[in-house]
Design a binder for these strands. Sequence first.
RNA 1: GGGCCUGUAGCUCAGAAGGAUAGAGCAACGGUUUCCUAAACCGUGGGUCGGGGGUUCGAAUCCCUCCAGGCCUACCA
Length: 662
Amino acid sequence: MYLDIQQMIRARFVEAVDEAFGIKTSEPVLSFPPKVEMGELSVVSCFELAKQLRQPPRKIAEQLAPRLLPLEGVDRVSIAGAGYLNFHLDRARFASELYQLRSFPPQPAAAGGNILVEHTSINPNKAAHIGHLRNAVLGDSFARLLRFRGYSVEIQNYIDNTGVQVADVVVGFIHLEKKNVEEVERLIGDTSVRFDYYCWDLYARIFQHYEENPAASAWRSEALKAIEEGAGAWAQIAERVSTAIVLKHLETMRRINVRYDLLVEESEILRLDFWKYAFEILKQSGAVRYEDAGKNRGCWVMSVDDSGGAGSDQEAGAEDVKILVRSNGTVTYVGKDIAYHLWKFGLLGKDFAYKQFYSYPDGHRVWRTAIEGEPGSPAFGRASVAYAVIDTRQSYLQNIVAAAFRALGFREQAENLHHFAYEVVGLSPGCAQEMGVELSAEDRERPYIEVSGRKGLGIKADDLIDQLVDKALQEVRARRMTEDAGEQQTCARMIAVGALRYFLLKFSRRVIIAFDFKEALAFEGETGPYLQYSVVRARNIFRKFQESRAAFDAWRLGESIDEERLKNFLGGDDSQDFWELILLAAQLEMVAEQAISSSEPAAMAKYAFRLAQAFNNFYHQHHILSETDPARQNFLLFLVHLVNESLTRALDLLGIEIPERM
RNA sequence: GGGCCUGUAGCUCAGAAGGAUAGAGCAACGGUUUCCUAAACCGUGGGUCGGGGGUUCGAAUCCCUCCAGGCCUACCA
């Protein structure tokens, strides 16, 4: 609704300029006056027009202002400063319409087809850590935002089950632990052992072993080869390990409200010869070439020189190329990734088969790719837009995939292939020391310490979640809201997840999070629990109201909220706070759009916080249940209702649930 | 060498596609609870927006340059 008004203002402004001056101008960017008294939306274009029209901006504004009205939903237009055109909304009408919307219904299906979001994509060789959580939470929230805006979204999780990382763990089982397939299976089935944690340690051990015995790394290539071929005991162990770990990852992510639609496994990409198809297309289009001399002799390479190469440095001589096929004939990771991405857009001319892999309590199923499928699978892939949530260190590789698309002539798809790049999660030096890492003086000065799976250094996702749940449980018990242990647990879990997800989402993508227990475990200030608490407070008002009076019914509230009444309450100078609260609550959709266009879920997180803050302030200033004027009381309840709707939805978009009590 | 990212309050970070007086949380200090639950609220102090040029009516935001830090630049995935 707010978005609609903005669009109307933009369009009307263009018309008005045409009427008044006979020139075509582009749609203006709207800004927001510093204070609501000055209006809610502002057009600053008069400054730009001043030069073209050879008139002072203020004079232009004066000529335009009368032509901008009448405009539906706008009460008046004022001219401020040297030439700002400020639009003052019809407050009562705005509030009333917002109320009619009730609960921000999902948008009607947006045009643009299927949007594919790939996230999580953890190597299936050990437990997930805090960095993986950032990836999953970003991707999940982004997908929620897209769905909220009416897009059809498919969530994929790429499983690199044939790579070196899995091979290393297989080497560990075989050479360090001397285990065979049956023994590994027994270990997986042993409920007293956390298998993903076990592999975490084993992975660190094998790396230590490699360092001490450089010759041992020959085992790795041996294992890798066996796994890629998919036959024999080693491949079986790899399959068992990766499947068991993927299950663990799904369960870890489920704890924090993250779900998937499809697991795309590298083993199927290999076995269905996706690369061959991609390679054929690449060769035909001339995007790749065979090197018969030089340092890359015997390899198939692709030029990464994106710009077209007109002015690039000839004297350096070293053209930027990326090897896709090694001299021994095997394909590199990027090659497989190109094939995968071609498939995402339905450009490969080849599809997977699918099998069910996992199902959630509500019946939603996760499918996995397969050689031979099961009936009933949805149609996956065929995306028109794809986002890959991958950390920023892989930007180079992602650019190569896009470059391959362009070289193949898929320019439009290349434009729609987005690398959703985010920065890693490191450990604050203090945190690293708490974890028992010895730091050099230089390290202590660093802003963060890199986590390392090879050293086993990192915060395991489930450990962190457990800690958060423990802490939340203590708080819940201390507050004595309920004696029911089950309810305490449920509450604690929601609070813990709220804290974690908000902590990971409040930072914008491009900043490195230096993980610190104190900050991550905080429940006060700008945190998830603060937001949840705000909603719980709002709902408590309704609850109490209901206890003392007739049942509170948001629908009936509407009867007393006619525009005349709203005018009374929103008209006066003392009503600024009320109006600001309504205006803020109305910005949900606008913020969602912004979060999508900038690929920045943090925008939604920040918005939710601002709204909660405004509400808490309001809550302290106005005591609703003791309000003696029934009309005013109804109006205040109406405000709380709007905030509740908006904030609840905002939190849902962040994947944060609201506990019954707090 | 090349590419990308970052630099805003003591700390951690926001700053809508250039707009009107640069914000928040934490930390510090001071206040507010016989309750619609204080996981809250209010107040105080704290800033050459890394430095310097430029474009513009207007720059934390755009351009150039320098400084500092990080990441990437494999016949690893």
